[in-house]
Design a protein around this nucleic acid. Structure first.
Lengths: 344, 344
DNA sequence: TACAGTTACGGACCGCGTAAGCATA
DNA sequence: TATGCTTACGCGGTCCGTAACTGTA
């Protein structure tokens, strides 16, 4: 068994079992990859992939185990390389981030701008996707960081460092009946069709839950994956928008009336996930610090050295996480339960 | 970086930094090992070992990190090989166990006899040592299982599966004043010089602690590393022996009076440690089951799949661990605190 | 002078890419 | 016929072991 073979194997797993695509990614010839896979399989004595004709169709049960182990081997090997890079004071490197629309569009631009000026020679890769897609990138070691809100159950092999909290905000056109109501009730809100995120309707602090507890059943006019789409349809008068406060653009959204919803809906926590057992380069610590000032190298090291979720949580226990986004007043009043449950 | 280089590196680390010895172990020539180490160091760009002249003297700080990662790489690679062996229904294999004198001498013979008849072609390696020595073997991935009592803090990267509990027993020659006392008190015990294990004097349930809580200060005549030595000196009249109940040999120790000490001294738990993240072969599950019948494959899998010590402990919570050793009566009365703290 | 690591050298092997072959949709 | 994996072939590099060398106790 060679490291190279495991690298090739990982690339195939990351390329939807397409050997040609894997070879391209590896800058190797297709026969080379094909041959090494075959050699590995024959050394192990069983098929990692199921074939139909010559094409790979799916991963065998044993193959899945091998791939999982191979990914861990490669992660450790990468960590060794990074130790070397660090000792050289090497400023070169890459930083791959998987994140959702809201973060990529409204939060990260500022962070990334600062980061680029701090580390101009680090290659930045931003991969936008749904929580599930990001979890898949994480599983295949394709990203260094995952930034998202909720969906903690998808990231079992990551440490999820809490970054900041945010409230949701109601947006309506100026002509809308709610435009004049500074502090609407749930009843008032439920009286209008709602336009919000797809994923806002699942999970324990979902809109559905909140309304249900009040004995209400809201009408959903439309669900979208990002705030820009929601704003567009709110402008068209389709309904009342509920978006993350961070997704408000003070200048561009001037035509919309923004109403704080922090008295109605619980706060969310955005976290950044780092692979357990991975090694962070110096510039990665810098990124964490830029994203969330409380994530100093000291704090991060303490957290990721944890041997258990409980130990991990203890590092952030009692910490006052900052709120982010427009009109995030009286935020501190909210219970810190999301925070303490973050690592599960 | 090649897997082979990491293998060589690990062998050097396991051979007290002696390259020649490492080469012998690897059945490779000494220049080959030397050369690959040098190639690895030059690829990484820093020294893994400090040298004095040409000889390696110690591990550099960065080198220690590299070695730790390398060991993990090799463990994962070994796990992949084992997956292959399992699919072949391969009965060949090896089982290395690190353990203490008491287990090796009094408990394991029976287990190993059964195991050998079940898996005659598996190579068995038993390494006896102190807890510290066993921990070192464990750290270097040189053993599959570690069996010991206490010293849990030395095995942070292992899951410690509880095997059985045992009480200590007092042994005296027939002529000794205590020989007639069926149920001695701590005061009576403290009146005589004591002969017991070295390690019985450390830790939270140590003899020192127990006597101190009763306001007593026993005289220690001699401390030994194993029960056979203790018995020898008890026979010579040096003092009262306190040994593990499992270390009583019904036939050979007929000349000694054995007095149950379970009312005086708390019970101990013997555990078997398996590397976290390692892969267990079928015969390894069989060994666990032979050693401790409650360690079925089902239970073991549930335990080692745990993501945290708490989750791990939950698997064994409420389980009635059997007692082992001569006259282990009314054992169930003891509190299960040792058990619940086992994984820490 | 014994010991431990390094350097030198020649041979075996291994993995690569190119190019041609062959199944499946 | 396009796509995607496999086979054939020749080259270059890599790794090994033997043997001679060098610094240290």
């Amino acid at each position: 068994m060679k490291l190279q073979q495991l690298r090739y194997l990982a690339a195939i797993a990351q390329s939807e079992l397409n050997i040609t695509a894997a070879a391209d990614r590896l800058r190797a010839s297709q026969p080379a990859v094909s041959r090494q896979l075959k050699l590995l399989e024959s050394e192990l004595g069983f098929a990692i992939f199921q074939r139909k004709g010559r094409a790979l169709t799916k991963v065998t049960p044993h193959g899945a185990q091998v791939i999982a182990r191979a990914l861990r081997v490669l992660q450790e090997a990468q960590a060794i390389k990074r130790i070397a890079d660090e000792t050289k004071g090497e400023e070169l490197g890459a930083l791959s981030i998987g994140t959702t629309h809201t973060q990529a569009r409204y939060v990260l631009p500022e962070v990334i701008q600062k980061f680029r000026s701090l580390h101009p020679s680090v290659d930045l890769h931003l991969h936008q996707g749904t929580s599930e897609q990001i979890a898949e990138m994480a599983r295949l070691n394709r990203i260094d960081f995952a930034i998202a809100t909720g969906s903690q159950e998808l990231f079992e092999t990551y440490w999820l460092l809490p970054c900041y909290r945010w409230h949701r905000m109601i947006i309506v056109p100026k002509s809308h009946p709610l435009a004049k109501v500074a502090r609407p009730t749930l009843d008032q809100l439920a009286a209008h069709p709602i336009v919000t995120y797809v994923f806002s309707f699942d999970g324990p602090s979902s809109l559905n839950e909140v309304f249900a507890r009040a004995g209400l059943k809201p009408t959903v006019a439309l669900t979208a994956r990002d705030a820009d789409v929601i704003k567009t349809y709110v402008r068209l008068g389709l309904g009342v928008g509920i978006i993350a406060a961070v997704a408000i653009d003070a200048a561009q959204d001037d035509d919309l009336v923004r109403i704080d919803a922090s008295h109605l809906l619980p706060a969310h926590t955005t976290w950044i996930g780092v692979s357990r057992g991975g090694l962070l380069r110096r510039y990665m610590y810098d990124f964490l610090h830029l994203l969330a000032p409380h994530l100093t190298r000291r704090m991060v090291d303490r957290a990721i050295r944890a041997h258990s979720p409980a130990e991990f949580d203890a590092v952030f226990a009692g910490m006052d996480l900052p709120f982010k986004g427009a009109t995030a007043r009286d935020a501190a009043a909210s219970a810190p339960e999301t925070l303490s449950r973050l690592s599960r």
